[in-house]
């Protein structure tokens, strides 16, 4: 079996031959992470997240000629996804990535059944209570796997703000999940602390 083409090889094929199959392969490879990041950003709104993910990939297709291989393709893709989320959220309301304002929301996303289904819902609920800035920083650093520097660049906020958001978000998540009496995640945190 031939080894799978690298992202770079697929990108060259798209640029040179306008190869849609190569682009489809890129989408297949990255769709799961991009959609997950957007689901966390949109507080679990799967339909909105998928719309934004589609927009992200279409924009990537249009702008692939401008990709300079200075960063990983996935990093470039997440940058587009964050911009798509920010501009959509701006249309709905002002997104304040620099602000510490809390945005309480308790939308429960429809998630696939799995082993840790309850824990995941707890985590999603807890993430939805973070401010936009904190949720964006957590999504960038843990879900998109960007470094703090890359996250700052992708989100267009200072590095110090990213670090502050991460610290505050983790403190809030801990408080929220530990205080969530009766939830599997809360129980486990309490047991860990014993």
């Amino acid at each position: 079996m031939a080894p799978a083409a690298s992202d770079a090889e697929l990108i060259f094929a798209i640029r040179e031959r306008d190869d849609r199959n190569a682009f489809a392969e890129l989408v297949r490879r990255h769709q799961s992470r991009v959609r997950t990041v957007l689901r966390r950003l949109t507080k679990g709104d799967a339909a909105l997240a998928d719309d934004l993910a589609q927009e992200t990939f279409v924009l990537a297709w249009r702008n692939l000629a401008h990709f300079r291989f200075e960063a990983r393709f996935s990093t470039w893709l997440y940058r587009i996804a964050f911009n798509a989320w920010q501009s959509d959220a701006r249309k709905r309301r002002e997104v304040l990535l620099d602000s510490d304002e809390d945005m309480p929301a308790f939308e429960v996303a429809v998630t696939e059944p799995g082993v840790d289904h309850a824990s995941r819902i707890d985590l999603e609920r807890a993430l939805a209570t973070l401010s936009d800035g904190e949720r964006a920083a957590i999504s960038a650093c843990y879900y998109a796997d960007l470094s703090h520097e890359e996250a700052a660049e992708a989100l267009g906020i200072p590095l110090g703000t990213v670090k502050t958001h991460i610290l505050r978000a983790k403190a809030k998540l801990k408080a929220r999940l530990a205080g969530d009496g009766g939830s599997p995640l809360g129980d486990r945190i309490e047991r860990k602390d014993e």
Partner: peptide, 25 residues
């Protein structure tokens, strides 16, 4: 560390394509 691990595990959980790639193309 446990919170970080939970976040990373949640991020790694794969989402089924379910026609997403075809819709993009």
């Amino acid at each position: 560390d446990w919170i970080e691990r939970q976040l990373r595990e949640d991020a790694r959980r794969p989402l089924d394509d379910s026609g997403f790639t075809a819709a993009v193309v």
